[in-house]
Amino acid sequence: MTSEKGAGTRFKPGQSGNPAGPAKALDKSRRALARLIADNAAEICATTLRLALAGDPSCAAAMTNLIASGFAEASAAGKNAAVGPGARSTPMVIDGELA
């Protein structure tokens, strides 16, 4: 009796269990959802913020996570702002207005 690694299994050692990769329909659905969210980002953020301020704990957590991720600072700084590790910019706010 041999005790080779992979003996008696469906796949040979080093062979992927799914050589075709993930289902194409799933990737298409993810892209469609990302596009839908991007197209409605301002409305989604406004609604989430309104609900958070009204006391919805899930929306408050979502807004906290959004702010902690640095997304809010990058958006406030403009679309040409550098985004990534170490590239966070914090805009200055004076009397409620971006300076």
Rank of each mutant, 00 (worst) to 15 (best):
A34D: 14
M1L: 11
G6K: 01
A7S: 02
M1R: 10
V83P: 01
A72F: 08
L98V: 08
G96L: 02
M92E: 13
A34T: 07
S69P: 05
G84A: 14
S89W: 11
A74R: 05
S29R: 14
S16M: 10
I67F: 04
G17F: 00
A7N: 02
A54V: 04
L51D: 10
C45V: 15
I44R: 07
P22N: 03
S89E: 07
F11N: 01
L36E: 15
M63L: 14
A54I: 02
G14N: 04
N80S: 09
K79H: 13
C45Y: 14
G17T: 01
P91F: 07
K5M: 02
G96A: 02
N18S: 14
K24L: 06
L66V: 09
P91S: 06
L36Q: 13
G14E: 02
A99K: 15
R35L: 03
S69M: 00
N80P: 00
P57C: 09
A23R: 11
M1Q: 03
K24T: 05
E4K: 06
A41M: 10
L51Q: 12
E4Y: 03
A7R: 05
G6I: 05
L26P: 00
N18W: 10
A38D: 11
K24E: 10
R10T: 07
L53N: 08
R88A: 06
S16L: 10
A60V: 11
I94N: 06
A23E: 07
E43V: 12
E97F: 09
V93P: 00
A82N: 12
R30P: 01
A41S: 13
A76T: 00
G6W: 05
L66I: 11
S89D: 02
